[in-house]
């Protein structure tokens, strides 16, 4: 069974890049255009891992983490945050909120897959 990824990003470009890389690597790709949609889609998609942007309208990445972690059933799902700021403060904040790891934009396919591997064990 393919590993299901729910990607949440308001940038079409980033979503396209993620879709291309993930589908190429054999992941099942789902996406949402902002945090609210992502959280709403979550129960239906039931992803194995969530990748979320931080700066988004209608619920930012921290909000996504909070809502997903706040729900007991989902509290273990790995959540990777996308960030251009490799500034540790954002990573620290995200992790404190419950993020599993991070992917620094711009990412290459290998680093994306590597990050997914570490949190899901799956290479695809």
């Amino acid at each position: 069974m393919k590993t299901k990824v729910l990607a949440i990003d308001d940038s079409r470009t980033i979503r396209n890049l993620l879709a291309a890389a993930l589908e190429e690597a054999g992941f099942e790709y789902h996406c949402a255009v902002d945090g609210r949609e992502g959280v709403d889609m979550y129960p239906d998609v039931a992803p194995d891992v969530v990748i979320t942007d931080i700066n988004m309208p209608n619920l930012d990445g921290f909000g996504v983490i909070e809502e997903l972690r706040g729900d007991d059933i989902n509290s273990k799902v790995p959540i990777l945050v996308l960030t251009t700021e490799s500034a540790p403060e954002l990573k620290a904040r995200a992790r404190n909120a419950g993020a599993t790891g991070w992917i620094t934009k711009p990412f290459d396919d290998a680093s994306l897959i590597f990050a997914l591997k570490r949190v899901t064990g799956a290479a695809a």
Partner: peptide
């Protein structure tokens, strides 16, 4: 609490 699993790390 962060959703990290040792098992996956070992797999990696």
């Amino acid at each position: 609490g962060t959703g990290n699993e040792p098992y996956f790390l070992f797999q990696t």
